[in-house]
Design a protein around this nucleic acid. Structure first.
Length: 155
DNA sequence: GCCAACGTTGGC
DNA sequence: GCCAACGTTGGC
């Protein structure tokens, strides 16, 4: 099983948007970056865990999701009416891929990026690297477990 | 709103 | 194939 972090601008697509879909499941369309595409097309598998991340005003991990499909062609790429069309992509020759994910949990209070930065255990996390803009990125199990633990109220 | 970092495009 | 110009991302 692998672990991932997926970024979204909440004004565009938030964790609540995912939560409110039928079955809490939706396809993650619109990724137009080759590295992120390769992760979805080649490496993501059903059952993989996802940290749902909001970028923007209050950058934070806001909850959890699960991958529910293999990578498959992103049909919005060849739909000229979609938000991110790419005329170079076609059903015969898809360039862009996506996966389906299912909502699992929304944290009562988001784990802010600034809090992640203070965690010694997260030194070296990809997300925290300067200039890191990848919208789909791998997370180690250690990092994932630590972040999940941060979300739990102290007991 | 600013700007650094990055990816892509296109002229040569 | 190089690289300058440009557009976008995303933290601050």
């Amino acid at each position: 099983m692998k672990y991932w972090l997926m970024k979204s601008e909440p004004g565009t697509y938030s964790i609540d948007d995912l939560r409110l879909k039928p079955g809490g499941t939706d396809h993650w369309d619109g990724v137009r970056n080759y590295q992120a595409r390769n992760f979805m097309r080649d490496e993501m598998k059903p059952g993989d865990r996802v940290l749902f991340y909001h970028s923007g005003k209050k950058p934070a991990v806001v909850g959890l999701a699960t991958v529910t499909s293999e990578g498959y062609p992103d049909h919005t790429a060849w739909d000229p009416k979609s938000d991110h069309p790419d005329p170079k992509s076609s059903p015969e020759n898809p360039i862009w891929y996506m996966v389906d994910i299912r909502f699992e949990e929304k944290y009562p209070s988001p784990i802010l990026l600034s809090e992640l930065r203070t965690q010694p255990g997260l030194k070296g996390m990809l997300l925290l690297k300067r200039g890191m803009r990848l919208s789909v990125q791998p997370v180690t199990k250690k990092e994932y477990d630590l972040i999940v633990k941060m979300a739990k109220p102290a007991s």
